[in-house]
């Protein structure tokens, strides 16, 4: 979500936000129309389920009505809205797990280090271009299932960082984790998804096997 530091482009949503802040319902509804798809998508990916995604989407825009006046312009409007959505999704995830607060960094947690990062097993170039795969209905189900099958703590980091484009620091702040912790979780998420997807989309005939083992 970070804008490049030199001459950031004007935020196309800022005018709508200002009008909404002044009490213009039509402008607010336009903003909702612009963001609802992304908010719903973020929630759906984080929670893996449409009912909860609906709850989070509605909560996000309800709190937006209350907090329109709090927007400080430190980020783009889109990033601000997505952050509110991510917070609501996290709240729901924690409630599901029965945890009152964010699990803080645990020194005994394997996510703190790289020691036991699993080695890739199936290594093969993919048969198809990822852009084409993403458009195929039957592939889409598989892709969604792979993401939904990740542990919450890995899926959350992958969704925020790799799909929604939050920086490592923003993701760490959102989740209440250290940046180092986010990076390890992200690596595990990426490797786990790579493994699952390569088993399906990899070209078996072109599979490669490491011919050397490092100590």
């Amino acid at each position: 979500m970070s804008e490049p530091s030199d001459s950031p482009p004007a935020d196309p949503d800022l005018d709508l936000l200002r009008q909404a802040r002044a009490g213009d319902l039509a402008a607010f509804e336009k903003l909702v129309g612009r963001f609802q798809g992304r908010v719903y998508g973020l929630a759906y990916r984080m929670l893996g389920e449409s009912h909860d995604a609906e709850d989070v989407t509605q909560q996000t825009f309800l709190s937006l009505v209350e907090h329109l006046k709090d927007f400080r312009g430190e980020s783009a409007v889109a990033a601000w809205v997505l952050r509110i959505a991510a917070n609501h999704a996290l709240k729901l995830l924690r409630k599901r797990r029965g945890l009152p607060t964010v699990p803080l960094t645990d020194p005994g947690d394997p996510d703190e280090g790289y020691a036991e990062v699993p080695h890739p097993e199936v290594i093969a170039p993919w048969r198809d271009d990822p852009g084409e795969l993403a458009e195929r209905h039957e592939a889409r189900e598989l892709i969604d299932r792979a993401l939904a099958g990740l542990d919450d703590k890995y899926r959350t980091v992958f969704v925020l960082r790799d799909i929604e484009g939050f920086s490592v620091k923003e993701t760490a702040d959102l989740l209440g984790l250290s940046e180092a912790n986010v990076k390890v979780r992200l690596l595990r998420a990426r490797l786990a998804l790579r493994e699952k997807l390569t088993r399906v989309f990899g070209d078996e005939a072109a599979r490669v096997f490491p011919d050397h083992r490092h100590p």
């Binding site: 609802q36 798809g37 992304r38 719903y40 998508g41 759906y44 990916r45 449409s50 995604a53 609906e54 989407t57 890739p120 290594i123 093969a124 170039p125 993919w126 990822p130 852009g131 795969l133 993403a134 458009e135 889409r140 892709i143 993401l147 992958f158 790799d162 799909i163 990426r190 490797l191 998804l193 790579r194 997807l197 390569t198 989309f201 990899g202 490669v208 096997f209 490491p210």
Partner: peptide
């Protein structure tokens, strides 16, 4: 070569999820 393929796979994985169609809201 194996590491090269792994790096490539990871880039494909990220692209795949980024390219995903939005989920339609009921």
């Amino acid at each position: 070569n194996p590491c090269r393929v792994v790096v490539d796979n990871i880039r494909s994985t990220i692209r795949l999820y980024k390219a995903g169609e939005p989920y339609p809201m009921p």
